[in-house]
Design a protein around this nucleic acid. Sequence first.
DNA 1: ACGCAATCTTGCGTCACACGCAAATATCGC
DNA 2: GCGATATTTGCGTGTGACGCAAGATTGCGT
Lengths: 202, 202
Amino acid sequence: MGLRERKKAETRSALSWAAIRLTAERGFDNVRVEDIADAAGVSPRTFNNYFSSKAEAIVSRHLDRFHRAADELRARPDGEPLWESITEVALSQVEPGAEVLAHPIADRGAWVVGVRAMVAEPALQGEWLRAAARAEAEFAAAVAQRTGTDLEKDIYPHLVAAAVTAATNVAQAQFLRGDGTASMRDLLSEALVRITSGLPTP
Amino acid sequence: MGLRERKKAETRSALSWAAIRLTAERGFDNVRVEDIADAAGVSPRTFNNYFSSKAEAIVSRHLDRFHRAADELRARPDGEPLWESITEVALSQVEPGAEVLAHPIADRGAWVVGVRAMVAEPALQGEWLRAAARAEAEFAAAVAQRTGTDLEKDIYPHLVAAAVTAATNVAQAQFLRGDGTASMRDLLSEALVRITSGLPTP
DNA sequence: ACGCAATCTTGCGTCACACGCAAATATCGC
DNA sequence: GCGATATTTGCGTGTGACGCAAGATTGCGT
């Protein structure tokens, strides 16, 4: 990878991270594009060369994450049953990635509060859901490839992808709603099991 | 209902409808807020008293529709099995509502093209999905009430609501993708059946 | 029927955002 | 090194979202 691409990736990452950090610290609309650009060491105009909105910058990390999930699904051994692969991939996403460990958090309590406020921000939810939808499309493609179904004609791969997205979102929401006793891993696992058993009335 | 409330409802409806019609006719960013306000016979400033963005105005009709779906679910006979109720309610939503019949379309071909472009508009997808998410929350509440589960602690009602939303979205997408031979009703019905059977690999 | 209070509408001003364009700057392939 | 290709940057423009306060409309008690 040449210098050019590396720098682009770094700038993108710096902008995204700055957007997230500042938003968690001060709240979404107490952060101006200028602040983000400053924090990343580029001009305000450059910000919009990378992202077309603050919301997009904030969500981009999650989008990348989803992106990798689809890759992982494709990389799973061929004989493995579909739902086993999906469960493995989904659960592997809850482990903290390398790039979050690279940014140590000083005040963890304040950080959690900030992040909670961030995901509750209406202006971000739309963008978040849009990212999930894009990821879902890619995931559906991976499922189609794996199951030999037709992405155009069959409804199956789309349904599976949508169900997995739904399970992920629900587990996430439940996790944030809860008091911290339930682990994200268990919640996600339970959500997937219930989806695959057809959600019978309890 | 007093004059005041009725007028408010009318203005809201007029604004929403104008936003949808103009967007379908000319495309999302060839419509200014001023145009919508003009078409509804109010000042531009008033537009923002009702909706905080163009996107919100356009989506508000769909949100109302979802809203009614949750009501219908609550209104279903008590003994009816959950998924039977849900299927009925979902399928009843695909019939054209009274308010769309009230606005006759002149050029149906152009209209369909316009609507397709509208739902493909990135700037609207986020808002659309947010509306679906809000509806989902309400739907989850209805499911919780019906099944005697706890909206706070149990994951079940959220999962059911999310699954129904997913099925609806997938059916919708498939319908738009297709050539018009498959009926929305059949697609949605199939999606729900597959979800409730746990999406086994075909 | 009248008038006061509550509510809604409207115009104005402001701030921020998204983005087209062209010049300056940096990187790449050779 | 050097020309070709990308990227960054500053500037200008159009629009959107919304606070604020004055004016208009409706609700309601008498």
